[in-house]
Design a protein around this nucleic acid. Structure first.
Lengths: 338, 338
DNA sequence: CTCCCCAGTGCTCATTTGATTGCCAACATG
DNA sequence: CATGTTGGCAATCAAATGAGCACTGGGGAG
């Protein structure tokens, strides 16, 4: 700032010399002292020349990530919300608020999973469209046990999607699969309790305590954006909406500040407990799109999530219109151990 | 080289983290230690991540110079021939060996002169087409005295070109002009001697010892490529060619090794002595094109020249087909003082 | 099972680097 | 002419950095 202004023009000799020095320094990795000796100037001079070369854009440094990733927002999100990992996927241009999670979200999450999962881990998968997409996009995964964290959502086309996802992940990984053939939301607590005692379901649930990496989805309290919302009656929807539900994750409900609300719902659901989830060293949430942005913020503020895969639209909202809230970064065991 | 291979794929989290670290380091100027603290890793980890980011082209550093300059060849020439400054101008594409010095050469030389000349300097200009071009391209020059170093070449269109160049340079600079109204090559030594006694010419020549920056041109011993060659008779041309003339500069002749030959020619010429030229702290030669490449090499080997402005074609020849010769870099007074 | 190898990590020490300060020359001003 | 000011430059010292080394833990071969 104090020396060469960008406005004063450099002559060709200065330019060429600066370029030569910059080449030595940045591309050939020579030290400034070596360069100073070669050019017969003091090392301070070299430093000044390089500094001004930087100012004048004679040296251009760019950080290139694959086009679909937004490094800047990823980093900002990670820092702001105290996440261990944040990956922001570029939202397709022109696609407005009603776009669901883009295809990319799943593919990128699959890549992230490949990084986070180590051999011997126990991977838990909740329900979610993006999670299905992710499972399909998985191409390699270290050997690990895969367990289903929630019941399935039994409407729409991808009926047994969650089961499929668990099977697919286990197949790619080469490990055991522990799916659950049960709906996520049941008519009443009794039915749910009965189901939980079923051999297969109980077997799967017995792994919940061992899960080292969980993948969850986030929905907002709107039709077609929350699995649970869609599964309830109008009266029930109204009931929970009055509690101030802002987000739903694996059938757990949160208000805008990330506090659990409507805990009674849990009794009717086949899902992993929030407290158990909190003990999972690495919880990856996948959700994107404008409509889910608020919900994602709410869940982040709950402190249940350690990593996030989202898109530009949601990231912008989280960065510009929401605050991380009081809960600091998570203090969990490092997900490194098995 | 030892750590991350370029072939092993990075997951999105690693990618995003590497990008974030690279941004901090390269664009925001944070230290690796700061980055290590922020990300909760050791500074060595940061160093390794940045190193691998460099290997994987996640960080791209490019040295950008104005398109017309060839930084790499400039630097190579400077280093190989021990020059103080070397500037290589991009030869226009497809323009073959018979291209004379491109327009750019003069413009770039003008810029170089603006750098090299300081207030109070005495600038000497020899004859040469590029020097005329250069003078026309001059846009600013510190106040200095401008002296004509050689007589003019009195044929062709730009008849009094050299005089014009001196006047123009003085006008831009705001200093005195000392032109010489005399031809460069004369029929015999007596005529030359008589001319040298002329008031105006003698006045100009009295400045030769004070010249601090000289600009000269280089020609090869061919028609239309050397001013002197064109001014001689066939017999004379043959005579000097038999002496092994490879280059001509301000009516001084050099063989391929940079040794002076045909010194008798000097008697017939109005020009600055080679020995005086050698005492000038900064001698800038301007010459380009394939046909002059050999000649440029010869003059460089004479050690008379401290800086060179040339083009890609000549530079390639100088770098690939010629050697710098025994004479090391010049040991002259720094051109800094007035 | 042991052993070796290998990749990854963090440490130590020597070197490099940046921020600060002091110096000198050029210049404007009283 | 003396003096203050400014700007560029080099020296100093503390912080940052790199190269080499030791440690560890897992995986495969014998």
């Amino acid at each position: 700032m104090t020396t060469g202004r960008s406005s004063v023009r450099m002559g060709p000799a200065e330019m060429v010399q600066a370029a030569a020095m910059a080449r030595r320094f940045y591309l050939e990795g020579k030290s400034k002292i070596q360069i100073a000796e070669e050019f017969g100037v003091s090392r301070f001079k070299v430093a000044r020349v390089l500094e001004s070369a930087l100012e004048r854009d004679l040296v251009r440094i760019e950080i290139r990530v694959p086009a679909e990733l937004d490094a800047e927002r990823s980093d900002a999100l990670r820092a702001r919300y105290g996440l261990r990992n944040a990956v922001v996927v570029e939202s397709p241009e022109g696609q407005a608020s009603d776009a669901p999670d883009p295809e990319n979200l799943g593919a990128v999450a699959a890549g992230l999973l490949g990084e986070l999962v180590n051999e011997g881990d126990v991977l838990g998968l909740a329900w979610g469209r993006s999670i299905i997409t992710m499972a399909n996009a998985l191409d390699r995964l270290p050997p690990c046990t895969v367990v289903q964290l929630t019941g399935v959502y039994d409407a729409g086309t991808a009926e047994r999607g969650s089961v499929e996802a668990v099977r697919r992940a286990a197949a790619v990984s080469g490990g055991e699969a522990h799916p659950m053939y049960a709906p996520m939301v049941l008519p009443d607590a009794a039915t749910a309790a009965a189901l939980r005692k079923q051999t297969g379901i109980a077997a799967a649930m017995s792994y919940f305590d061992k899960v080292t990496v969980a993948v969850v989805s986030i929905g907002s309290w709107e039709p077609r954006v929350s699995t649970v919302y869609d599964a309830l009656s109008d009266a029930e929807r109204k009931h929970y909406a009055d509690l101030g539900v802002a987000a739903e994750m694996s059938s757990h409900l949160f208000d805008a500040d990330g506090r659990r609300v409507g805990r009674d719902l849990r009794e009717r659901c086949i899902t992993v407990d929030a407290d158990r989830l909190r003990r999972v060293p690495e919880v990856v949430a996948i959700a994107g799109g404008m409509r889910k942005a608020q919900a994602v913020g709410a869940v982040l503020r709950s402190g249940l999530v350690t990593s996030l895969v989202t898109d530009t639209a949601a990231a912008d909202h989280l960065l510009n219109h929401q605050s991380p809230g009081p809960r600091p970064a998570l203090e969990r065991a490092d997900p490194g151990e098995a």
